[in-house]
């Protein structure tokens, strides 16, 4: 009981529940494969099944920081689309592939900075700003590229999707690095504390001398840049650049972040939770797809998990008034 209280005091119960669910899931899968002779719980299967999860995982890191600061970014999928189209058109126009990557990153950075500018200097609610820019960015991407996807990128560029270390592709390694960096930023630095302060109470934070405008601008710009990186990695993995890249990914990434215990109202949240949220989301999806070959069940499970995780939390933390 004492230990339970300490865990609750540290606020780690959410991570524990997620880790427990993840362990239970893998244990169940392992038990099943004893009778069937197939291997789900192995590093080879796991890395093979994970190739398509890294883009969503990357998006979830800056998104966690944004949600902790009390904001939201619905446009990350659309920025991926705009970036992928930039990449495709630049390559098609005869630009070298690496300069094209640079231009793509610049496009994502600009799109993110635009979001930040709207949020900061116009004081419009980020949900509305990014709902608008979501349509605008994906619309521009659709308008620019039309119906014809661009493909046949050079082999040196496509090699970016090959496994690099321990079966992980560069995207996976980048996610690990990014998650650790964001975790340190959030848990160990003054900037991280300021971020939480903005999420808890923006006015108080401003009067306490926190550079609210600069922090927000940086957050949305970083989110745009990471979305562009995810787009480049997507294009390298699939050898195709088109306007529907990243469609719906914003909602999946937000699901992972919230599943990880970050409060949608800001102030409370951890990168560790997001990492577990991403893994759990991915494991449920791949297990159901791998074992039953039925993708539709995962939608039900993920939706129910999202609502239940917050419901259980609200029931457990309800103050007796």
């Amino acid at each position: 009981m004492n230990m339970w209280r300490r865990i609750r005091a540290m606020g780690l119960w959410h991570e524990l529940v997620l880790a427990g669910l993840l362990a239970g899931l893998l244990a169940g899968a392992w038990y099943f494969e004893q009778t069937r002779g197939a291997e789900f719980v192995s590093w080879e299967t796991q890395t093979a099944l994970s190739s398509h999860m890294w883009e969503m995982a990357l998006l979830s890191v800056p998104l966690t920081l944004i949600i902790i600061s009390g904001g939201i970014d619905l446009s990350v999928g659309a920025i991926m689309s705009l970036s992928a189209v930039t990449m495709g058109l630049a390559w098609q126009a005869g630009m070298g592939v690496w300069p094209a990557v640079g231009l793509t990153l610049a496009a994502g950075l600009t799109a993110g900075a635009m979001n930040g500018t709207f949020v900061v200097f116009l004081g419009v609610h980020p949900l509305i700003v990014t709902l608008g820019t979501m349509s605008a960015y994906r619309g521009i991407a659709e308008g620019l590229i039309g119906a014809e996807p661009v493909s046949q990128f050079p082999a040196g560029f496509l090699a970016m999707s090959e496994p690099l270390v321990a079966g992980l592709p560069p995207a996976g390694i980048l996610f690990v690095v990014l998650a650790i960096a964001a975790g340190v930023l959030l848990g160990r630095t003054a900037a991280g504390r300021e971020l939480r302060a903005i999420g808890y109470n923006e006015t108080t934070a401003r009067f306490s001398g926190v550079a609210v405008a600069r922090t927000k601008l940086l957050l949305y710009t970083a989110s745009g840049l990471v979305s562009a990186v995810a787009a480049v990695l997507f294009v390298a993995r699939r050898d195709t650049a088109k306007a529907d890249v990243g469609a719906g990914l914003e909602l999946t990434a937000i699901t992972a972040v919230v599943l990880g215990g970050t409060s949608i109202f800001g102030g409370r949240g951890r990168i560790g939770g997001t990492v577990l949220g991403v893994l759990l989301l991915h494991e449920v999806r791949s297990l159901v797809a791998w074992r039953w070959n039925r993708d539709e069940l995962t939608f039900i499970i993920v939706g129910a998990m999202l609502i239940l995780s917050v419901l259980v939390h609200s029931v457990l933390t309800r103050r007796k008034s």
Partner: peptide
């Protein structure tokens, strides 16, 4: 349940599509 509506309806968006 005191679950924020954006979470409930995001969950519904996903779950109902699966259903």
């Amino acid at each position: 349940g005191r679950v924020p509506s954006i979470i409930v309806t995001l969950g519904m968006l996903t779950a109902l599509r699966g259903l």
